[in-house]
Simulated assay, not measured.
Amino acid sequence: MLLFFLAQAAQPSCTDQIAADPVKAAETAQSWAARGGGALARQCAGLAYVAQERWAEAATAFEQAARDAKPNEQLAAANLWVQAGNARLAGADPRGAVAAFDKALVSGLLSGPAKGEIRLDRARANVAAGDVQAARADLDEALRLVPEDPLAWLLSASLARRMDQLDRAQADIAEAAKRSPDDASVALEAGRIALAAGSLPAARLAFQAAIKNQPGGEAAKAAQAELDRLGGSTAPKPE
């Protein structure tokens, strides 16, 4: 989740309180907001809710902070909409996330890599919302803006596989692997693409690589499940 503070001097005790007691920090931030703390106070509340994984409350706080931002704080407001979008996405509200990312982008204040990362975020939200065409457009733009980000290539490959565009999926996962050769998630997706293309040996090798690259991780567990489903294959022994 992208974190952005409106001002470096914004209530220095806020982050300290969140680390010590996020529940108390949220109460303090809400009290601060009631006394006229404005966007800074509401952002602090949002961060406290994030620490508690109270995603809906966090998103609402970030949205309120964005609306409370002063005219000379509109870049900060755009970043607050990004925070809101990520909180909505974490809280399984992809349509709310898309709406928040839309507000961040429509400001026109975010450009270059920052804009590319938001397009990645909105692509994830659009996939979760079931709008694959919108997700494809977001990913294509993200690849233009942040071509060195392996996540952009990984997400693009995964979406291409889901859309049964296997040639593109294979090309994009190869780009992801160039940029992050030891990433278990990349190896997992490579295996799924190989499986979709009917190449069982390549799929098994990729799934085994995912397990070797990140033993015990979520991608490794998913890769082992794929191997178990295929049968007749076991995870590589630790070296």
Score class of each variant (00 low, 15 high):
G91V: 09
R136Q: 14
F62L: 07
E57P: 02
Q43P: 07
A87N: 08
F62E: 07
G116V: 09
W32K: 08
G130D: 12
N72F: 10
A66R: 10
R42M: 14
A99S: 10
D149L: 10
Q83V: 01
N72K: 13
R35E: 14
A134F: 03
S111Q: 14
A59V: 01
A61W: 00
A51C: 07
G130T: 07
R136C: 00
A100E: 07
Q43K: 07
A25I: 10
E148F: 10
A123T: 09
A100N: 11
S31E: 12
Q43Y: 09
G116T: 05
A100C: 11
A92Y: 13
N126T: 02
A78Y: 03
A134H: 06
D93F: 09
P94K: 07
A129P: 02
A135H: 10
V98N: 12
G46T: 08
A129S: 12
V106T: 13
R88W: 15
L75T: 14
P113N: 08
F62V: 08
A78M: 11
E73Q: 15
A104H: 05
D121T: 00
A87G: 10
G116F: 01
Q52N: 01
E53S: 05
A56V: 06
V106F: 00
R136E: 13
D149W: 03
R54I: 00
C44L: 06
D121F: 04
Y49Q: 14
E117N: 02
E27T: 03
R88C: 01
A104C: 06
L75S: 08
T60W: 06
G91E: 13
A59R: 00
L109Q: 13
E148N: 15
A51P: 12
N86Y: 15
R144Q: 14
D138G: 00
R35K: 14
E53L: 03
W32L: 11
Y49I: 03
